[in-house]
Design a binder for these strands. Structure first.
Lengths: 204, 204
DNA sequence: AAAAAAGATTGAGTTCGTTCAATTTTGAAG
DNA sequence: CTTCAAAATTGAACGAACTCAATCTTTTTT
């Protein structure tokens, strides 16, 4: 049976995350003060720090929830992958990219990525790094599956190749969020070109 | 003929950069206040902001000088590359990695990379991005040179492949600076493994 | 050479993330 | 039900990055 303390804790965590998520997206990460979040969540500023070690870590908690969703969606796609190598890879990558701006702004992504490099030891920074590793692993899994179906050169190490693909898509995503004016379609174009090259490389 | 004002400007810029560089490395980026840098450079805090838009941009100015050196060194190596594909690539990558901690600490790299993602529009953030592109171009050039000597599959686009190699080495470098305890030798090991795989992929 | 304009420096002031000692709330024991 | 300890909340205080109006220095003009 859950005690009052536990329930309140979960409730407050939720309120803080909700408030921060909404405010960050509406006003921008920098424009939102911890006090604003606290006020919207009906707690004090100090309490926010009881739940999240820094403002950056709070952001990463929000971003991590988003990435968790993407990992789930990716799992579904990998369980029955498209017929061709190029389609399968492109499909997975599109899935990642198209989710990215559902709940998060480019600014939020920039700040989140920056924070995860700058402060790799905080709880949600570690979580975020873990999730990144999961995405990378998914790409590896997909390539391994394609190999088993004879759709990719069997002499390539799926692990290595998967990491290469993931690094590439990750790097393009960074370029995308760094360029505020760049539309999602441009990211698709860049990605399709690179993916085509990589698919050629993988061809039996 | 250079006027007094110009000379003073150059002198102050140099003093600020020197002081910041020394202090960041000795005490850590976060531990150093702008006032400390100002005092060591014999100017006021306000003057620092006349020369560098933010503390992060000042750091990126310092890091950019380091990367400029690496670009120079890389140029020299590319002008007469080693005999084999694997040696050539590994040599260039080692050059990049081994320079990295000469004047900069891991913390400085983390902060610099973070800042360049977070604030891509500042003067030195743009400069840093440019320099990164130069490094990437060097890798592309090296691969193109190897191809011309018949040391790599001629059907591969050197541009694409170079970017892939650069992304990979960049990603490994990020992992390296994120892990404070990881020694340079471990980075070499990681890198050698990946490079070997990539060299296999490129083999004629 | 004096005066005016342009450019640079300064440091006190503002803002916001973060900390912490005091207080309040919750859960357990008697 | 009362008492006590543990846990959580609070908001005032602190520190550091950054701003800006006043001042000073260099250059240009007359």
């Amino acid at each position: 049976m859950t005690g009052l303390r536990e329930r309140q804790k979960a409730d407050r965590t939720g309120r803080i995350l909700d408030a921060a998520s909404r405010l960050f997206r509406a006003q921008g990460y920098d424009a939102v003060r911890i006090e604003d979040i606290a006020a919207a969540a009906e707690v004090s500023a100090g309490t926010c720090y009881n739940y999240f070690s820094t403002k950056g870590d709070l952001l990463l908690a929000i971003v991590s929830m988003e990435v968790e969703e993407v990992v789930e969606a990716g799992r579904a796609l990998i369980d029955n992958p498209p017929a061709s190598t190029a389609e399968a890879l492109a499909g997975l990558i599109r899935l990642y990219y198209d989710h990215s701006l559902n709940y998060l702004s480019k600014e939020m992504w920039r700040k989140a990525m920056a924070f995860s490099i700058e402060a790799p030891g905080t709880p949600f920074s570690q979580r975020y790094t873990e999730l990144d590793a999961m995405l990378s692993a998914q790409v590896c899994d997909l390539i391994a599956a394609l190999q088993q179906r004879g759709l990719a050169r069997p002499d390539l190490d799926p692990q290595t190749l998967g990491q290469i693909v993931f690094n590439t898509l990750n790097q393009m995503f960074i370029e995308f969020v760094k360029a505020e004016a760049m539309p999602l379609t441009a990211l698709h174009r860049m990605s399709d070109a690179q993916t085509a090259s990589l698919a050629t490389l993988m061809r039996v």
